[in-house]
Simulated assay, not measured.
Amino acid sequence: MELFQEALARLVQDPLLCDLPPQVTAEEIGSQVALEYGQAMTVRVCKADGETVPVVVVQNASVLELKKALRRHIQLRQARQGGVQHLSWKYIWRTYHLTYAGEKLADDRKKLREYGIRNRDEVSFIKKLRK
């Protein structure tokens, strides 16, 4: 394990991967490499509090894959910062919609490109209205 950590520390010093945090995961390295080779894209998710979270997904990702990537990103960030350890994602998706250009991303199976979402586009959380 110690050898792996040393190799990972050297790897993160590479100019291509220098943006990654010191406690990087193999998944984050894979995402960054895929991004550099054009196999992935960054979708900026704007939270209700105004914070923007960059999420990396594959080029042909679905809405569900974006939601899962957002969840992984937030969980990793919370673990590193020592913040709230548990969020109810069931509650979040029951309370908020993801939207792009005023359109709800309602169908989890639909591809992001079908909604017109491209690299570096911004998706927002919008609170659902009560019926």
Rank of each mutant, 00 (worst) to 15 (best):
M1G: 06
M1C: 04
F4R: 02
E6A: 05
E6M: 03
R10L: 08
L11W: 04
D14L: 09
D14W: 06
P15Y: 00
C18T: 02
D19F: 10
L20K: 00
P21L: 01
P21I: 05
P22G: 01
V24Y: 01
T25P: 08
E27R: 13
E27A: 12
E28L: 13
I29D: 00
I29Y: 05
G30D: 02
Q32P: 00
V33H: 00
V33I: 09
A34Q: 05
E36S: 11
G38I: 10
G38P: 02
Q39E: 14
Q39P: 04
A40K: 00
A40P: 00
T42A: 06
R44C: 15
V45P: 02
A48Y: 14
A48E: 10
G50V: 08
E51L: 13
T52D: 04
T52G: 02
V53N: 12
V53T: 10
V53S: 07
P54W: 10
V55M: 08
V57W: 08
A61F: 15
V63L: 15
L64W: 07
L66G: 07
K67D: 07
L70H: 06
R72I: 14
R72A: 14
H73C: 13
I74F: 08
Q75M: 08
R77P: 07
R77W: 14
Q78W: 15
Q78N: 15
Q78V: 14
G82M: 15
Q85W: 15
Q85A: 12
Q85T: 09
Q85I: 15
S88R: 03
W89N: 03
K90E: 09
K90I: 13
K90G: 08
Y91K: 10
Y91H: 10
W93M: 02
L98F: 11
A101S: 10
G102H: 02
G102Y: 02
K104T: 07
L105S: 04
D107V: 12
D107Q: 11
D108R: 15
R109G: 01
R109A: 02
K110R: 09
R113N: 09
G116V: 08
I117R: 04
R118H: 08
R118V: 12
D121G: 03
S124N: 03
F125I: 07
F125N: 00
F125P: 00
K127C: 03
L129W: 11
